[in-house]
């Protein structure tokens, strides 16, 4: 267990460094890292203001999404629960788009993450209310489809109504996500919320472990279900809201990562939380490196890559669960 965590930590560190060293400018690694420390010259500008914020956001958003997936799956006791698939990211994107296109974000910078957070909170609250405490797969997925569709349609509507000729083309950004051209101001906007969400979700381990025995057993162990549910909702809203506000809706990270890591940590939801945080960071950093290597000329969206990996995993899960679903 701790060895798995250490290995994941090493993987994240390696990918973080690679993310700093990959870019269209093709700078030599030694000089890049020196410039990152010194901050001098044009290379220093590139390292500190372009690549560093990108790597930080990739790691933090990935960690948040991985952890939120693990927490939701633990709480609903359903491996299909994932913020992107069930409409939480889509609701967050709607909140962010509303903040930007009503001019709220221009008047008050924090309005962007706060509105996204409110959207994500509303989305996750609705899904959990509709799916019920035991999170039956069918109601969960159906609620998720309805919320995703509504949030996606409203996001497109807001962008199409914008007087800005570029806005309509950004529908794909809000639905697929990208870390291109983010700056330290985006890090300052999102990172505090991401860290708060990760810290909150990390405290839920004991409750989620107890919940595997059933609600009554968990209650007899002193776990208060209402508080646990509130923790999952607020923690997920914090990480998904903040991440989506600056990087768009990135799907499947919270599905794939807990699925892959569950056997490694012995199927205990509590231990899976930290492992999924590291795994999510690694997955998003890797995806963000891949978009820069595969199609350096274009802003290939992150969600394209995560879906290419994630959708087959999702299909596999449905295949395995089809008897339960039927």
């Amino acid at each position: 267990m701790s060895r798995a965590l250490a290995l994941l930590g090493l993987l994240v560190a390696g990918l973080f460094a690679a993310s700093l060293l990959v870019g269209p400018a093709g700078l030599p690694p030694g000089a890049s890292l020196r410039a990152l420390v010194s901050g001098e010259g044009a290379t220093g500008l590139v390292m500190r203001e372009i690549r560093l914020p990108r790597a930080i956001l990739g790691a933090a958003i990935g960690a948040g999404l991985g952890m939120a997936g693990a927490a939701m799956q633990g709480y609903l006791r359903n491996p299909l629960a994932e913020p992107g698939l069930i409409g939480v990211s889509g609701s967050a994107a709607l909140g962010a788009v509303l903040a930007l296109h009503t001019g709220l974000a221009a008047a008050f910078a924090l309005a962007l993450p706060l509105m996204a957070l409110a959207g994500a909170g509303l989305g996750v609250g609705l899904v959990m209310a509709l799916a019920g405490p035991r999170g039956g797969s069918l109601t969960l997925i159906l609620a998720g489809i309805a919320i995703s569709a509504l949030a996606g349609a409203l996001t497109s509507l807001v962008l199409n109504l914008s007087p800005n000729p570029w806005a309509a083309g950004e529908i794909v950004f809000w639905m697929m996500g990208s870390l291109a051209d983010r700056s330290m101001s985006h890090v300052a906007l999102a990172l505090p919320f991401l860290l708060a969400g990760i810290a909150l979700l990390a405290t839920l381990g004991r409750g989620l472990d107890a919940l595997t025995l059933g609600e009554d057993a968990a209650a007899s162990l002193g776990i208060r279900m209402a508080r646990l549910r509130l923790g999952v909702v607020i923690g997920t809203a914090l990480v998904v809201g903040a991440g989506t506000a600056v990087a768009g809706a990135i799907g499947f990270v919270g599905l794939v990562v807990p699925h892959v890591l569950r056997p490694l940590v012995g199927a205990a939801p509590g231990r899976l939380l930290w492992a999924s945080a590291l795994g999510g960071a690694a997955m998003l950093l890797a995806a963000d490196i891949a978009v820069r290597v595969v199609l350096p000329e274009q802003d290939l969206k992150l969600g394209v890559l995560t879906a290419l990996v994630g959708a087959p995993v999702f299909l596999h899960l449905i295949y395995r669960m089809r008897r339960a679903l039927a």
Binding site: E49, L100, H101, G103, A105, A106, S162, P163, N164, W166, A167, G169, E170, F173, D181, S183, M184, S185
Partner: peptide, 12 residues
Amino acid sequence: GASRSEEILDHP
């Protein structure tokens, strides 16, 4: 109006 596409022009 606002757009993410034009945000790059305000990048540090």
